[in-house]
Design a protein around this nucleic acid. Structure first.
Lengths: 211, 211
DNA sequence: TTGACAAATTAACGATCGTTCACTAAACTG
DNA sequence: CAGTTTAGTGAACGATCGTTAATTTGTCAA
């Protein structure tokens, strides 16, 4: 994710180091409680040097948002156009269990987890964070799943229930687990029970929709 | 909630007004981004007068936490001791639909909603907020429901499934809906679909566990 | 080798931060 | 009514905030 935004050719990679430090600090204390001096200290430069790379402190946050947005559009969900061929190619069990893999992949990526934390902290103060959570995460995921379930129903591979309700029943527990997972992980606490719950939820869901 | 913490006999009620202003401001911008001068301006006093009521800015936040904790222990869930008589007295349908009522009651209380927002903002920076969310909210709710489901199973009023799994399947979607609800509400956006989802989820759950 | 440009430093700016101080006015207590 | 407590003001404290300006250092192309 960082590699794409900050190509290695850039000499010292200070611009990238600033983002890395900012993500770590913002995710722990929030944007407002982190000073530019804290960021630049972690990078190893003076505070004034930061302004050679970013116009303002807010532009750093904006860059982090943009990275997350782009990463989600690229990697989080397959494009709607490819949905039909996916649903035709893989059985519902495999499709749904992919949600488990994608969960483990997300919580295993410290960068993604930290940006998710930042979004949670800033969601009320900053309408950009709110927009990412509501549109990209919630609406995007549910819309994708609804379309997928509708296709499965059309192909007769799952029971003919309301696809939007199915999307909700499948995904919303995962949202809540993600929230709790990220919080437990913050103190290095045990998260195995949550992982197990996710898997059991998905398997129970598969049983509910099997035709 | 405020009435109990700040009895009317206190002359001007400045201490209460400070908390009210702080809750509103903290819930919008976060503790760190709100100055004591902003709070006291909203109350109508000078910043120095605040220190007649609270030793530090943090003590205001601490008071808010304590209020939320106590309110939850008093009103959120019936005491475990009374659980047996409740499960004996009301059918599972009524018990579970009570979760819908309690959801509507929570999101309809601006004070509770704002404190919930504060907890979300501060959850990483402040271990006290983290503790409230993980222990009082998550663990407390799931523990209560697990005990309730276990009793229902013992009385044969629901199917004999794993009570902890049932608690998870019932409650976690509600956690996520609450999060999204509070966020949508922040911009005054339409939340009717979410309310409907909650009710449909609970009714679907009732169907799943009916013996 | 020189000139250009990027990236760093030192120093400082005005503003704002949480908190404290000395003091005053009002309200309760004996 | 005198005396003490409570709640308020006005001013200031040292620290820190985001940001800018002037200047130096390092790097690569011409």
């Amino acid at each position: 994710m960082l590699d794409r935004w900050f190509p290695a050719k850039e000499s010292a990679g200070t611009k990238r180091k600033i983002i890395e430090a900012a993500i770590e600090l913002f995710s722990r204390n929030g944007f407002s409680a982190v000073s530019v001096r804290e960021i630049t200290k972690q990078v190893g430069i003076k505070e004034s040097a930061l302004y050679n790379h970013y116009k303002t402190k807010d532009e750093i946050l904006e860059t982090i948002y943009a990275m997350f947005r782009e990463d989600r559009r690229q990697h989080a969900l397959p494009p709607i156009g490819k949905l039909d061929e996916i649903v035709k190619a893989v059985p519902p069990e495999t499709f749904l269990l992919q949600g488990f893999e994608s969960f483990k992949q997300t919580v295993g990526d410290p960068l993604l987890v930290n940006i998710w934390r930042i979004l949670n902290i800033e969601q009320y103060r900053d309408s950009r964070a709110r927009d990412i959570i509501l549109e990209d995460v919630y609406k995007g995921t549910i819309g994708f799943l609804e379309a997928a379930f509708a296709k499965m129903i059309a192909y007769g591979t799952i029971k003919p229930l309301d696809p939007r309700m199915l999307a909700f029943e499948y995904q919303y527990p995962l949202f809540a687990v993600m929230t709790e997972y990220v919080l437990l992980q913050f103190d290095g606490r045990d998260t195995r029970e949550l992982e197990e719950r996710v898997e059991r939820h998905i398997r129970a869901f598969i049983d509910r929709v099997k035709p």
